[in-house]
Design a protein around this nucleic acid. Structure first.
Length: 300
DNA sequence: GCACAGGTAGATT
DNA sequence: AATCTACCTGTG
């Protein structure tokens, strides 16, 4: 058996609120800016992973159900289990969003029907979004690919997949080496966080499980982590649907759709949490995806 | 050449 | 408390 062999396509274990996805929704969900370790393949499948898990995802050619595969040497049962956690995400529900009374939200929901929030590993999500500051998604992916290839460990001896380094592993990577991975000024932040976490065992896990306001306040103590990054980490890496990350796209979307011109990010975040409610993070992801799609369409 | 990119932090007003 | 600026690097 070659190390390049993959298992036959398998159905992904049933997810909550099943829907038929389109390729565009699948791509936006998996590779639209929540996670940075996925790559589109020529056959329209997506290849990527998290921690030591390396998988491919596709929609079944005829019935559009979600399928996965993994390298032939991996245990499919364990992978399916981890994949289910990763994809099922928090119990987000569009019907808890005010789309009936909010035409702008309704349009965004209709643009990517079935878009979900991932449940990524907390530590990896923190690393990814600390690296995301003022970078475009392809560049963030490139930075993290370099960090993984140079400083991450193999999933298995024969595997091509390199996990991102854990924070414990990053503690022994110099800022210089991180700069060599094109992190720029983010290298200082990553190195600083790694040092802090090495000196404070248990801090990250306690933060992951703290109530949202406390978890966010703790994350913001870290160098390179402000409101936006903290909310991304809590939304995509800790299933906190009340987190409402406000980035440049959301600032644009809220100005255009809700008349919030000139509002400061924190005011927009407050508006988002009160207007969209307990699942505001889900609304954010739809608005983000829709606003970017409109910008792409305008460039063509 | 230069503005801008899923921001943050420290200085200045 | 609001606004300004430096911070790396790749892309258009």
């Amino acid at each position: 058996m070659s190390a390049l062999d993959w298992h036959p396509w398998q159905p992904v274990p049933p997810l909550p609120r099943p829907r038929l996805l389109t390729p565009a929704v699948l791509a936006e969900w998996i590779d639209g800016g929540q996670a940075f370790r996925w790559q589109a393949r020529p056959d329209r499948s997506l290849e990527g992973g998290w921690l030591h898990h390396h998988v491919r995802l596709r929609l079944h050619p005829s019935d559009s159900t979600l399928e996965f595969s993994a390298p032939a040497t991996t245990d499919l049962t364990a992978t399916a289990d981890a994949l289910h956690t990763y994809l099922a995400g928090p119990p987000a529900d569009e019907d808890l969003l005010p789309w009936r009374s909010d035409p702008s939200l309704a349009v965004a929901l209709a643009a990517y029907p079935g878009l979900r929030i991932l449940r990524q590993p907390f530590g990896e999500t923190l690393l990814g979004f600390v690296c995301s500051a003022t970078k475009q998604i392809p560049q963030i992916k490139q930075m993290l690919a370099l960090v993984a290839s140079r400083h991450g460990s193999h999933a298995a001896p024969e595997s091509e997949w390199r996990a991102l380094p854990t924070w414990a592993e990053l503690a022994s990577v110099s800022e210089e080496e991180l700069r060599a991975c094109s992190l720029g000024f983010r290298a200082r932040h990553v190195a600083g966080i790694a040092r802090f976490l090495a000196a404070n065992p248990g801090w990250l896990t306690a933060t992951e499980h703290a109530p949202y306001p406390e978890a966010k306040a703790r994350l913001i103590e870290l160098p390179g982590v402000g409101e936006k990054v903290a909310d991304c980490v809590l939304l995509f890496g800790a299933a906190r649907l009340e987190a409402f990350p406000v980035d440049t796209w959301i600032i644009k979307a809220m100005a255009r759709r809700y008349g919030l011109d000139g509002w400061r990010p924190e005011q927009i975040a407050h508006f988002g949490r009160t207007h969209f409610g307990a699942h505001a993070g889900l609304a954010q992801q739809y608005l983000f995806a829709h606003e970017r799609a409109l910008a792409r369409a305008a460039r063509l």
